[in-house]
Design a protein around this nucleic acid. Structure first.
Lengths: 228, 228
DNA sequence: CGCCCGATTTGACATCGATCAAACCGGGCG
DNA sequence: CGCCCGGTTTGATCGATGTCAAATCGGGCG
């Protein structure tokens, strides 16, 4: 985190306030959270923090995508979560431990709001609005991580890809067109696949009416996808 | 949940108080939580709740083991977590949604403390001690579920088994003897393996000095296990 | 507008773990 | 003490996905 930061300005405060995390806060609780936010910009591939470092802060993504991952002894990496604009990450360490349990890397140029762990911990211990916001964020993350486990254990690669497409499909039936918000690389990691496996999954979905051109995915029949 | 319940008695209150979840509570917060606890007994294989049902309560295990799992469209099941005595489960729905997102089944005869979702939600919104206990529980569960994802994606079956053994090993070096707290069946599901795969993993660990006789596991060299 | 580099796809292969079937074991009950 | 059934192990096979290498694509920059 060797980068200049500044206190959140009006625009950034607006972004933060619209975030699911801070959305429900009002008055003093909101003001104190916004006041404590420091905004950083980081270039693609930069590490926000690394596993094992003291967990001094957690973050909210303002722009870009952040990858949470862990590295195994033999150097392979596994993604745990891809954080989109509006997502909070590492908030599980406010009351969950002294050190980061995974690394966080900017998947592209990103803008982040940084919250001091200690400050927010204290705030949460005296303000139930803040505590509630944290509980809601934690619950959501826990549920989606459980989904991730189940998906890994129950579904094949094409099924997981179909699932992803369906979830970000604007319509529930008929045809649709989706533009991936990031590189296929990232998507592969997010689904627990090697890039090659993602590619093969896409091509196996061709028979179900899925067409891929760069980042643009054409879905011929959403219903059919759900049957995969 | 077709079973008689009763308010927690002295012994059960003692058990609950020693639980990581309620451990840090004192005074009024503790009293109100204990007062709201209802204790149920359930026979092996009974469902505590099923995915999709309205999430009216969450639970703390007093005795026995509870299996959290989800069922896929084609009927296969994937375990999400095995809850041991002292564990809380479904607390992620206090602020996380209206319906259960997975099913819970008694893996053997169990005794459970039931907490009303609405009551605790209200309590958490006014009492920061309770909120803190919930945040701590959620954080712990989130971190261990992340561990689970990483394990699934990074480690082979023998590695996951070795990991499990190491984590519940009393000593960090030398030899050790472990008694599994439940059937291998459950362990397999917990590690995301078919029972046959668990069995094979154990037998592949024989060359590393691991001996299996029923539920008793002999570890010849803990250090060696860590190298797997 | 074309080049160029990194991202993606394709191919060939090895490995892991699921599945089905059958043999085996062990603990609880009569 | 032995039977019996459910749980566990073993064997055989198959499908899915990781890995490595090579070909191809595509988007951004000059």
């Amino acid at each position: 985190m060797l980068d200049k930061s500044h206190k959140a300005n009006i625009r950034e405060r607006g972004l933060l306030t619209k975030t699911p995390f801070l959305h429900s806060l009002t008055g003093n609780a909101l003001a104190r959270m916004l006041d404590s936010a420091h905004v950083y910009s980081m270039p693609a591939r930069a590490n926000v923090f690394r596993e094992g470092e003291p967990a001094l802060a957690f973050y909210c993504v303002l722009a870009g995508y952040v990858r949470l991952y862990r590295v195994s002894r033999d150097g392979r990496q596994a993604d745990i979560r891809i954080c989109a604009p509006g997502d909070v990450f590492a908030e599980c360490l406010i009351f969950g431990g002294e050190k980061y349990r995974f690394s966080a890397q900017a998947a592209e140029n990103v803008s982040l709001a940084r919250f001091d762990m200690r400050d927010v911990r204290e705030l949460a211990e005296q303000d139930t609005q803040v505590a509630k916001a944290i509980m809601t964020a934690l619950s959501g993350h826990l549920l989606s991580t459980m989904d991730c486990v189940v998906n890994d254990r129950l579904h094949t690669a094409p099924q997981r890809v179909a699932d992803y497409l369906i979830n970000r499909c604007p319509t529930a039936t008929g045809t649709a067109s989706i533009r991936l918000p990031f590189q296929k690389n990232l998507l592969a990691g997010m689904l627990g696949l090697a890039p090659e496996a993602l590619s093969r999954a896409f091509s196996s979905l061709r028979r179900t009416g899925v067409t891929v051109r760069g980042r643009v995915i054409q879905i011929g029949d959403v219903e059919a996808l759900k049957q995969i």
